[in-house]
Structures are given as C-alpha cells and as structure tokens.
C-alpha cells in the first residue's frame, strides 16, 4: 500500500531548564493515501506534537518520519519549507489567517509562494471559496469573518494547491457544535473530492465520528488504532 505518512519509533523529548518532558515515546504509524485519520486523546497526550513532527514544524528526538517518501526528520530547513509549500496543507486551531490579507488573498497566499501566475491563482481561489461556501465574502479580511468562516478559508487555503496531505490541529476547538459539524463535513468532502489525505486531532467525540480511522494517544504513546469504515 502506498503511504502518505510513515512514522518509525518516533519519540520527542522537550527540555524545560533541567526537566525533560517525554511528549512522544516510540510511536510507529502508517497512514495510507486518501486516509481520513483522527488523532484523539486528552490534553498533553501528544496529538499536536505528532502533527507538528509529521508537518516538519518540529524535529523528533528519535525515530524516522516520511511524508510521500521524503524523510522529514533529516531535511534541511529550506527543503522542509519547500515540502510544506508543495505537499502539506495546514489548518490550525486559531490564528490561521494572515490578518492583513482578504479571504481570497489568504487562499492565494500559498499559490503566490509557489509562483503560480496571478490569473490562475485568482481563478483557483474563487473556485475553492465557492466550494467552501464563501464566494460572497472573498474580499473580507479575517477580522470581518466569523470563526467558522475563518476556518473554512483556512481549509480552502490548505487544499487549493492540491497537497497530498492536510494536517489539522484541533480545527473545531473554537467552534460551536453545529459549525464544527459543518466544517468536518467540508473536510470529509475535500478528502473525497480532492483526493487528499487528512490527519486531524481532536478530543471532541462528535468530530471523531467523522473519521475513517481513530488513533488514540495517551502519555505520548498510541494506545488504540481503530479503522472505522
């Protein structure tokens, strides 16, 4: 099976002054292409740490991590930035959008970094904003959008340049249940329609219901891995 993500014996230790905190211990994981995976577990279980390591935002203390066959844990900064730019989309819990850019400009941002020509950028951004139901709000800045709308813009931005993987760290944490449900439906739709692998973290049971595969972490270890489809 073709893997989008492969983790082998990954561990992460944070050092705060003289105290070492073991955030992840010996985590091994294979995530095939087009999977829709939920990382669950209580606060401090290592969900965000694992997402950050997969996304190359942080480096593991030990083990190996591969994304689309590229060994992320040994990449140079520049190569990591390029990998994130071309292959990985991010949706964070908050502060997702660039406040001085409009919704459309936020969606175009990654494409602009990729060097996509202006006309094509705008066309793609408008298409995806329409798909997430925000075609009328493209000229609004983040401060003029609700939390749910902001997350939709973030999803649109994560998906627009056709990455192979989207990492979403508690994307619904700041949303009410109805908006959270809508957002999850949108993520699932994107997963199916755009052929993108999704890994998201949550401790919200409602959100977990949307996953194809539910991986539970506790104290930095995988304690359960259930395929639900």
């Amino acid at each position: 099976m073709e893997h989008t993500v492969l983790c082998r014996n990954v561990s992460k230790v944070y050092r705060q002054d003289t105290v070492a905190v073991q955030a992840l211990t010996d985590v091994s994981l294979e995530i095939p292409r087009l999977d829709f995976v939920c990382l669950s577990g209580p606060s401090g279980s290592g969900k965000s740490t694992l997402l950050n390591l997969i996304g190359g935002l942080d480096r593991p203390t030990g083990g190996e991590i591969y994304v689309d066959g590229n060994r992320v844990d040994q990449m140079e900064k520049g190569a990591l930035a390029e990998l994130r730019l071309r292959r990985i989309g991010f949706v964070f819990q908050a502060y997702n959008l660039i406040p001085v850019l409009t919704a459309r400009e936020n969606v175009e941002f990654v494409m602009q970094l990729q060097g996509v020509a202006a006309g094509e950028r705008t066309r793609k951004a408008r298409e995806i904003l329409k798909e997430v139901g925000l075609e009328d709000l493209e000229n609004r800045r983040p401060g003029e959008l609700s939390g749910g709308q902001q997350q939709r813009v973030a999803v649109a931005r994560a998906i627009v340049s056709a990455p192979s993987l989207v990492l979403a760290d508690e994307p619904t944490a700041n949303l009410d249940s109805k908006t959270a449900e809508n957002l999850m439906q949108l993520l699932r739709h994107m997963n199916r329609e755009h052929g993108v692998t999704f890994i998201f973290s949550t401790h919200d049971k409602l959100v977990m219901e949307f996953s194809q595969r539910l991986i539970t972490l506790r104290d930095g270890r995988i304690v359960d891995d259930v395929r639900r489809d």
Partner: peptide, 16 residues
C-alpha cells in the same frame, strides 16, 4: 511572532 510562524508553516522561507 505567531504570524511569522504561520508563514513558515505555510512554506515561506525565512529569507522572505
């Protein structure tokens, strides 16, 4: 600071 982190997460190189 968070914004610059976001830029980097989205693939903007530090030189930019």
């Amino acid at each position: 600071t968070r914004e610059f982190g976001l830029f980097q997460a989205l693939g903007m190189p530090p030189r930019h």
